[in-house]
Structures are given as structure tokens and as C-alpha cells.
Design a protein around this nucleic acid. Structure first.
Length: 501
RNA sequence: GCUGCUAUAGUGUAGGGGCCAAUCAUGUCGGCCUUUCACGCCGACGACAGGGGUUCGAAUCCCCUUAGCAGCACCA
């Protein structure tokens, strides 16, 4: 039956269903809806302050931000600094800077280290409920028992005994590694990862930079307590947290709390940059990297330095979405997003890498007017004046017999071994086209700035137009080369970071 | 090994039984435009992991295989 016949047949037997047949599915570009979000959401971004934010954090924070914007509500930045061993005091400020750079709509900021008393309180309540016990077993020993599904002796302690031990923990009677508070789950749980996990532990060293304490909650406990107390309604996080979500559910159940709605997205592989905090830190300490914003790193400050705009990161991350499949992050797609943003506003300039200086024989004095932006004449021109002595990019003239210097004139080149003899060949653009002469960038030999173009694969020395000095911290386009962010001008020397083509 | 999740073009993504000889973006390759190999415009290329079912009909549901990933810490 053809579609038309089907339609007629349906019209005859069940006209009320016809609308359904002809209705077309919408191809929505939005991310999937969240359940129970119609009346607003409370979401969170919960980084550990161990270093600056990187691309992985960007996905988590932007996706949550996306839904807060979509449904309205609150967005909590929760700094999860409950492990003194993994807190870098300098990271607090860096996290805040990065959050601001991303433009997240944060409405509340909480530090877990300010809330230790709250966790202690709920820990005591959990013990009173019989939902937790203080375990003095050696970690190795417990692990063996757990894998066999067997209880350790501590599990049989009475509530009173547990409360007593808990108080001793708080009083500093124990040392690091001696005791832990475990949540009673199910020793027969098919996934050993679920069995009686730790909720509280002791850390004697290093000292926490923000709080004087030795008893700290483990992530699953503080997260569950905070998610409830802060009224978090929806959580979007990586699938590495799926097991944690199940563990946290035990706490919610013990206290009779309603857990948030969770979504777990897949792993995002990112190639080409270093992402591990420890790897970055080592590299910085050993001098391999210049700092947290070294362009070989995957930190947000590193990609910002390369001229990638936060809005491009946001678009790229929303485009990736919350799918559960593992994906590989595409720099190409990010660059494309950034180009959309940057192309309309970046001024155009000449950068001549690996220059050769030549004198154009027979060239009249010439004043070239090159548009700052080809699609926006109102922006004006750069004026380059030359008497004939110019810098040309070696790679673009080698082996050529004729080229056109953009916005200037044509030249003929005669090669004497490696030495080019360059002569004026008229102003006619038509002729250059006819001869298929490449149109290349150039610089007057007496009006130029030394410029280093830094890329991940190394640096390129050359010269650029003097006006570039006025573009510090902005992205420009070096014609025929690509977009670059002007990082600094030092004693007339320009440093530029390559963004993308 | 145990527990669980996933599988659409090079990359990301849409799709949730018939609109799918599969969407959009990016990429690559052509062409047009252009005093940039940019931007813009036009066109082309390119995928339902494999095998069984269920069904009149499967990318969509079920099973198996394969592959990948995650967790199995007194980290987050």
C-alpha cells in the first residue's frame, strides 16, 4: 500500500486517527527534558578545590547551568573540600575565577569545610538510627571480609558503644587510619562496592587550610547530607558517580529523605592536552609547563589564553549534551564554535613568519590600505607604507616566479640559487589572477614588530604589523594563518597564542 | 573477576515501531564569491556494531555475541 493509499484507507475506516498519521515529529535542538522540573530546579556544581577547572569541569558545570537557566531556580556552587590531602589553598580562588569566566549563573556558594558540624550531627543521628557503626578494623582486613560478604566484629556494636566511639573520634582519641564510620548497607549486595562504605574518617595531616579539624566526612556522606539540606532537586554528573548515587541512596533512605533526580552522562575523552591535576602540577613544578595556563594543559585558563571564548565552550558542551555513551571531545567542533564568535570581531593583520627581507626593484613608493575587517568597511583600514623594502613569508615565495603582495602590487621573482631577485610587476590585480599568482601577506621592512606565534606544537618567529600592539588580550586574525590571541607586548615584542584556523 | 551502563557517518548529535533509501552541526572534497588557503553561498561524501527473534512493519522492542566505559578507597 502506498502512503497515499494508506491515507485514503485510514480516512475511510478511522478518520479520527488521521491527524496522528500526518503529524510530524519535531526535531528539537534542545537537550532532553528533566522530569519533575516544571516548577524550577535547584542544581549544583561541586568541584574539589585541588586545582583550576578544566574541560571536564566545564561539561558538568555548563550542563547543570543549562538546566537551571531552562527551568529557573537556584544554582549552588558547592566547594567539596573535605579531603585536606587534596585541597590546594590556591585553588579556591582559581575555581571562583574559572566559574566567573564560564559565566555560570551561580546563586549560592557553600564550602563543605564550613559545615563539618552539620555532618557530625547527622552522623550521630545515623548512628542512633542504627544506620552506621564505628569500625576499628584495618582497611585491608575489612576489604577482605567485605569481598566475602562477611561482617566485621564492629558491626555488632550497640548504638551506645558506637556513640561512645564516635565521641572519642571527635575528641581526638584516635589517629588517622585507626577508625572509620561505616554506613550499614547490605553485606550480601551483589556489588561489593555497595557494602558498608565509609562515611567519616580521620585525617591528621596535612592540616586543612580553612578549618581546624581532624574528622572529615567522606564524599558520599557529605554529598547526601548536603544535597538534602540544600534542597538539590536534580543532579547531572558523570557516570563515574553511578555507584556513588546508589551509595548515597542508603543515606536518603535511612533519614526518609527524597533523593534528587539524577542523570549520568558518559565519559568524555579529551586528547591533546593534560588533564590530571597531579600531572599538571608535576609538570609545572618541574618546569615542563609555564603554569596552570600553559597551552598544553586542558584547563579553562589555558584555552582562554589561546583565545577560546567561554561562550564557545558553552555551546560545544551543550551540543555534546548528557548522553550516556562515551564520547571523544572534538577540538574541531569547539574551534568551529569559537570561530563563529571571533570571526566577526577579530581585526585582520599581517603576520610574516620566517621572513626574508627583499628589495623590490623598480617599485614606486606605495601606501597600502588594507581593511581591518573585510566584511565591515566601517572599521577602517591599516595603512602600510613601503619604498620597496619588504618582508615576505619564506614558505610562500619559495619556488614562485610571481606573487601579489596583498593590497599592494605584483612582484616577479627570479631565483639565483637560494637568492630571490624581486622586481616590481605592476598593480594589476587582474594580471595577478591571470598568472595565478598567490596573494600573500607582507610587511614594510621598516615598520614592523617582532612577533612570536605560540602553538602547541612549538613557536614560530616572525613579524607583525605595529597596530597589533593595540590588540592585547584580543583575538585577531593573521591573514592566511588563522586566529590568534595577542597575549602581551613586551619591549615591542609581541607574543601571540594561536587559536585555530 | 564481580556489579552496572552504553553502542547512529571521521567527530558530536536527532530519532523511543510506520514520517527514516535516517536530522543537524562539524569535517573532508568540489564549485561560486573574494586583493586571506578566512567569512558567506551552492553541491558532494559519509552511519543505524554483528547475529537472531517479536511484528504486516524495527535504527527504535527482546535475546545472544562483540566492543567500549564506569565502579569495586578511611579520593571527589
Amino acid at each position: 500500500m502506498s502512503p497515499a493509499e494508506r491515507k485514503n484507507r485510514l480516512l475511510a475506516i478511522a478518520p479520527e486517527l488521521l491527524a496522528e498519521l500526518t503529524e510530524t515529529h519535531e526535531h528539537s535542538r534542545d537537550l532532553p527534558a528533566l522530569e519533575s522540573a516544571e516548577n524550577g530546579v535547584v542544581m549544583r556544581f561541586a568541584p574539589n578545590p585541588s586545582g583550576p577547572l578544566h574541560l571536564g569541569h566545564a561539561r558538568a558545570s555548563i550542563l547543570n547551568d543549562y538546566y537551571v537557566r531552562r527551568y529557573g531556580g537556584r544554582y549552588v556552587l558547592r566547594v567539596e573540600d573535605t579531603d585536606p590531602k587534596r585541597v590546594d589553598p590556591e585553588a579556591y580562588a582559581m575555581v571562583l575565577e574559572d566559574v566567573e569566566w564560564l559565566g555560570l549563573g551561580i546563586t549560592d556558594i557553600v564550602y563543605q569545610s564550613d559545615r563539618l558540624d552539620i555532618y557530625y550531627d547527622w552522623c550521630r543521628k545515623l548512628i542512633e538510627l542504627g544506620g552506621a557503626y564505628v569500625c576499628v578494623c584495618d582497611a585491608e582486613r575489612f576489604r577482605e571480609l567485605k569481598l566475602k560478604g562477611k561482617a566485621c566484629p564492629c558491626r555488632e556494636l550497640t548504638v551506645e558503644e558506637n556513640l561512645d566511639l564516635w565521641q572519642q573520634m571527635l575528641d581526638g582519641v584516635f589517629y588517622e587510619g585507626d577508625v572509620t564510620v561505616r554506613v550499614k548497607t547490605d553485606l550480601a549486595h551483589p556489588d561489593p562496592a555497595m557494602r558498608d562504605y565509609s562515611a567519616m574518617r580521620i585525617v591528621n595531616a596535612p592540616l586543612h587550610p580553612r578549618v581546624d579539624a581532624t574528622v572529615f566526612p567522606l564524599m558520599n556522606f557529605s554529598v547526601a547530607v548536603d544535597d538534602h539540606l540544600l534542597g538539590i532537586t536534580h543532579v547531572i554528573r558523570g557516570k563515574d558517580h553511578i555507584a556513588n548515587t546508589r551509595r548515597q541512596r542508603y543515606i536518603f533512605d535511612y533519614f526518609g529523605w527524597k533523593p534528587p533526580v539524577y542523570r549520568h552522562y558518559g565519559r568524555m575523552g579529551i586528547s591533546g592536552v593534560v588533564l590530571s591535576t597531579s600531572g599538571m602540577r608535576e609538570g609545572i613544578n618541574s618546569g615542563i609547563y609555564t603554569g596552570w595556563d600553559d597551552i598544553h594543559l586542558g584547563t579553562l585558563r589555558a584555552i582562554a589564553r589561546r583565545g577560546i571564548e567561554p561562550e564557545a565552550v558553552r555551546t560545544a558542551m551543550v551540543d555534546i549534551g548528557i548522553g550516556e555513551t562515551d564520547i571523544s571531545f572534538s577540538w574541531e567542533n569547539l574551534y568551529s564554535r569559537n570561530k563563529e564568535l571571533v570571526d566577526p570581531k577579530a581585526n585582520r593583520y599581517f603576520f610574516v613568519p620566517d621572513p626574508i627581507e627583499v628589495v623590490v626593484e623598480g617599485a614606486p613608493r606605495h601606501e597600502a590600505h588594507a581593511a581591518l575587517h573585510p566584511n565591515d568597511p566601517s572599521r577602517g583600514v591599516r595603512t602600510l607604507v613601503t619604498e620597496g623594502k619588504v618582508l615576505l613569508p619564506r614558505a610562500d615565495v619559495e619556488g614562485k616566479s610571481m606573487v601579489r603582495l596583498k593590497d599592494l602590487y605584483n612582484v616577479k621573482i627570479v631565483w639565483d640559487g637560494d637568492t630571490p631577485h624581486v622586481s616590481y610587476a605592476g598593480d594589476s590585480l587582474e594580471e595577478a589572477r591571470r598568472e595565478k599568482a598567490p596573494i600573500i601577506q607582507w610587511l614594510p621592512a621598516d615598520a614592523k614588530l617582532p612577533c612570536t606565534l605560540l602553538r602547541q606544537d612549538g613557536s614560530h618567529e616572525g613579524f607583525c604589523e605595529p597596530l597589533v600592539a593595540g590588540e592585547v588580550d584580543r583575538v585577531v586574525q593573521f591573514e592566511r594563518i588563522g586566529f590568534a590571541r595577542i597575549d602581551s607586548v613586551d619591549n615591542g615584542r609581541v607574543s601571540a597564542y594561536f587559536a585555530h584556523r
